[in-house]
Computed example of a mutant assay.
Amino acid sequence: MTLYIDADACPVKDEAIRVAERHRTEVKLVCDGGLRRPQSPWAQLVIVPEGADAADDWIAERIGPGDICVTADIPLADRCLKAGGAAIDHRGKPFDADNIGSVLATRNLMADLRSAGTMEGGGGKPFSARDRSDFLNGLEILFQKLKR
């Protein structure tokens, strides 16, 4: 089992590492630079070449059954599921076969509306302490599920 973190903008890197350490699981923080090396012996910083999907491609090429990816990137979550892995966002919401289709469709619709000028903005609500707690709980549940 490996925990992959789409690390460039992930607000829960330290929390994810702590959960993985408890489960004695290897962690790969994947980014295109700018992060410091994690202090955990279980965690490795992987720096990929700059590019829009370089980190996503690196993760998607390696993830497999029993692995988990922490990402807010819905297309990456879809790729991870298709490779047999699991995926969870930074607010603790797991992606699975039952929800990924609708989540991906909603994401694509919103992107189309923004690009057409029909809708302004983007991004999500501010990240809160409750979101951090929900993430820790969600990741722990996912680890327990995969270990069964």
Rank of each mutant, 00 (worst) to 15 (best):
R107S: 06
A129I: 08
G66D: 15
A77R: 02
R18V: 05
G51F: 08
D57P: 05
G51P: 08
S115I: 02
D53R: 09
R132S: 13
E15G: 02
P75A: 05
L109V: 07
E15R: 08
K82Q: 10
A20W: 01
E120A: 14
L76R: 10
I100C: 06
K82G: 01
T106G: 12
R107C: 06
L35C: 06
G84K: 05
E15C: 08
R24H: 11
D73I: 13
R36M: 09
S40W: 09
A97I: 00
R36T: 08
R37Y: 12
R79P: 03
I88R: 05
D57R: 15
A7D: 03
D67I: 10
I47H: 06
H23T: 00
R114G: 04
D14L: 06
W58I: 12
A77H: 02
A60V: 14
W58H: 15
I63Y: 10
F95D: 04
A77T: 05
T71N: 05
D67R: 08
P38S: 08
D32I: 02
E120R: 15
V70W: 14
A54V: 07
P75H: 05
M110W: 12
I63Q: 08
D6N: 03
H90N: 11
R91E: 07
L76N: 10
G51R: 12
A83L: 06
A116M: 13
D73V: 14
S128E: 06
A43R: 09
L45S: 06
F127A: 09
N99E: 01
G34M: 06
H90W: 04
A116C: 03
K125A: 11
R24I: 01
T25L: 02
E15F: 07
P126K: 11
A83F: 11
G123W: 14
A105Y: 01
A97L: 00
P38G: 07
D73T: 13
D112S: 13
M119F: 06
K125I: 00
T25E: 08
C10W: 02
G92H: 01
R36V: 05
A129V: 11
H23P: 00
T25I: 03
A129Y: 04
E120P: 13
D89N: 15
S40G: 05
S40V: 07
R62E: 15
V70T: 11
F127L: 03
I47Y: 04
V19E: 00
D78P: 00
P94E: 04
R24P: 01
N99W: 08
A16W: 09
G64T: 12
A116E: 14
D89P: 04
K28R: 15
W42D: 13
R62I: 14
G84L: 09
A60R: 12
S133D: 12
Q44A: 14
H23V: 00
A116Q: 13
A111Q: 14
A86N: 12
P38N: 06
K13A: 01
P75G: 10
D98C: 02
D98N: 07
G64F: 07
L35A: 04
D98K: 13
P65E: 15
C31S: 14
A72N: 15
A83Y: 08
E26T: 12
G33E: 05
G121R: 08
V19K: 00
A54L: 05
H23E: 04
A55Q: 11
I68M: 12
S40N: 04
S115P: 00
D78R: 10
G117K: 12
A52P: 13
